[in-house]
């Protein structure tokens, strides 16, 4: 990730250092790409079905151009939604500094949410790996309980959640010591 862009995005403070930049596990994107690959194959399957069982439709003077127009629209839409799904994955980021935890979430095409949490407000954290694929590939969620306005922060489908939880708690402890000295 471009570091200059990142610093501008979080309005980095003078004493603040970016410790971790976390994104959802790559397998989450791969599973979505596999789903879109199946969507791409649907018209191909339908074409062979029409060719073998309903050849009249492919020869019809109205249905044939209508089917072609429909397929053109279908592939255009699937390709654009695939890109939107990639952006939804790639623009979701959790940035952990020595002072804050930032949740930057792209919610669809028209919404983007940025939440901040001061590390010293973290009360406790829970990490969870649940399900067949998460267990096989080691990704899961980290739930952070806070004393702030937003009571719970969730880092979803992140790699090595147990390790990440420990890192967050260590940073929170250091930040609490820093604030207590003040």
């Amino acid at each position: 990730m471009g570091i200059t862009h990142l610093k501008q995005l979080i309005s980095q403070k003078g004493y603040e250092k970016i410790k971790h930049v976390v994104r959802r596990d790559k397998l989450v994107l791969i599973f979505q790409l596999f789903y879109f690959l199946l969507l791409f194959l649907i018209p191909v399957v339908l074409y062979f079905l029409f060719k073998n069982y309903l050849p009249a439709i492919l020869a019809h003077n109205i249905w044939h151009p209508a089917v072609l127009l429909g397929i053109s629209v279908y592939y255009s839409a699937v390709w654009v939604f695939l890109f939107a799904a990639f952006l939804d994955y790639y623009l979701d980021t959790w940035i952990i500094t020595n002072d804050r935890l930032l949740n930057i979430e792209q919610e669809g095409v028209f919404a983007r949410t940025i939440s901040e949490l001061d590390l010293y407000r973290i009360q406790d954290a829970t990490s969870e790996i649940k399900g067949i694929f998460p267990s096989l590939f080691g990704y899961g969620s980290v739930y952070i309980q806070t004393a702030g306005e937003k009571a719970r922060f969730v880092l979803e489908q992140v790699p090595n959640p147990h390790e990440l939880r420990k890192k967050i708690m260590d940073l929170a402890e250091e930040d609490r010591k820093f604030h207590n000295k003040k």
């Binding site: 952006l87 095409v109 028209f110």
Partner: peptide, 22 residues
């Protein structure tokens, strides 16, 4: 197709705005 192109434009705008140096 016009609606799809609108979504193309919005997606590119989001990418350019939030991931300028990547």
């Amino acid at each position: 197709i016009a609606i799809i192109l609108f979504f193309v434009f919005i997606n590119i705008k989001n990418l350019a705005r939030y991931r300028a140096e990547d």
